[in-house]
Design a protein around this nucleic acid. Sequence first.
DNA 1: GGGAGTGTATGGTTTTCATCGAACACTCTG
DNA 2: CAGAGTGTTCGATGAAAACCATACACTCCC
Lengths: 111, 111
Amino acid sequence: MAERTSHRAAPEHAHPDEVPVLTALAALADPVRLRLVRELAGSPEWSRSCGSFDVPVGKAALSHHFAVLRGAGLVEQRDEGPKRVNRLRRAEFDARFPGLLALVLREEPTL
Amino acid sequence: MAERTSHRAAPEHAHPDEVPVLTALAALADPVRLRLVRELAGSPEWSRSCGSFDVPVGKAALSHHFAVLRGAGLVEQRDEGPKRVNRLRRAEFDARFPGLLALVLREEPTL
DNA sequence: GGGAGTGTATGGTTTTCATCGAACACTCTG
DNA sequence: CAGAGTGTTCGATGAAAACCATACACTCCC
């Protein structure tokens, strides 16, 4: 049967349109996640796997943070071989919360 | 000596320009504080005392929330008789974080 | 199929934060 | 000056969230 290439459970995504403001703000109000979003914004889409980010937390915590970002409609993930690659949902998120992404991205990275 | 009319310690304010993004986001990522900001935005400046807000918390918690809002450069307070009246720092905050205030204000109040 | 690489799930610890009750400080009014 | 009204401070409590170590699931390559 020519099905999907992956037998792994697809990660649950929330579309920005269904995301409450509080959720979006809470997702961004964390140093680690803010760092992830910024680093992701500086990379081409689907180019970064979860483990490729320079954050001072273990794998488990990292996985949790990505779940929060998915739940806030900030990132999209896709399985690519053994890795799970990421994309920042610029357009969709910006349509829902205009300017918010630009706001956190144009900030001093030294924080 | 024609000094100040109040012998009370003036509340410590942070100017939006010295506020990190994380602090601003964290301040807004709370249901009670979000409510305070929204309600304040719908009232004339200096017209609302701290106790005049319809939030389901006691005095102590309320006082704490206002301290957080001050620390994020979101509200300014002034002593007026026995009361402490508030003002939303629209212009200053918007200059520092363009669009953020508009974002949380134009949202569904039912949250 | 075995093993390395990658991410998730689980269980438990620690930290952070919102909250409350009570005590205190200040202002005005009677 | 006594008392009511308003807001802050303090200490303690409870809930939420971040974190880690371990164990597990899946994919690829030898």
